[in-house]
């Protein structure tokens, strides 16, 4: 019964993640290829309550389905998102596992994940698609932007962490209330 509940919750999280991604794709972007990354709220939430394997699964399902819907499957932005996402899931999972709730809080984990994600995406863009200096000149803007979006994501996940434990009855692995 517990297994089925977990499967249903993960499926719902993947669905919510796709919806967030789709809504986000309608928002104007200040820099080409730059995305807000609000769907990483769900990735971080899944990391806190389930673990890296489940978070990665949700991330892959979300990336493939939403890219398919918006017509970006196998486009440069798809690869940026996929590469950056893989790294960020493992990075945040590593941080959570090493720190184990000490030092950095949820917001700190989220901000550092968003920053690393942005850095990796820009490196992928520079290595695979455009080796122009101008690409690198976008990096400071996208990194500062990542701090801002990571902050928003972190605050949302901070409240979801309490909600997940009280309302859903799941136990947060690193930040129990």
């Amino acid at each position: 019964m517990e297994k089925e509940r977990k499967i249903v919750t993960i499926s719902l999280l993947a669905g919510i993640s796709v919806v967030i991604y789709l809504i986000e794709s309608f928002l104007p972007s200040p820099v080409p290829w730059l995305r807000y990354g609000f769907s990483h709220i769900i990735t971080l939430f899944a990391l806190l309550f389930f673990g890296p394997k489940e978070a990665l699964l949700i991330f892959i399902v979300r990336t493939v389905i939403s890219s398919l819907i918006v017509g970006r499957l196998f486009s440069p932005t798809f690869f940026f998102g996929l590469g950056g996402g893989f790294v960020v899931v493992f990075f945040m999972a590593g941080l959570l596992s090493i720190l184990d709730g000490r030092g950095l809080g949820i917001v700190g984990i989220s901000v550092s994940g968003a920053w690393v994600n942005s850095l990796v995406q820009m490196l992928i863009a520079a290595m695979l698609f455009a080796r122009h200096r101008e690409i690198f000149l976008l990096l400071p803007v996208s990194l500062i932007f990542a701090v801002a979006t990571g902050l928003i994501n972190g605050i949302v996940v901070y409240y979801l962490n309490g909600y997940g434990q009280r309302a859903l009855g799941y136990k947060s692995r690193y930040f129990p209330v």
């Binding site: 809080g105 700190g108 400071p140 990194l143």
Partner: peptide, 25 residues
């Protein structure tokens, strides 16, 4: 919501992001 290390990290990342511009140039 914010731990001491969260605040330090956020400030450090903003500084590092801004400092990357002259470094890239």
């Amino acid at each position: 919501m914010f731990t001491k290390w969260d605040k330090i990290l956020i400030i450090a990342l903003i500084v590092a992001s801004a400092a990357s511009y002259p470094a890239i140039r």
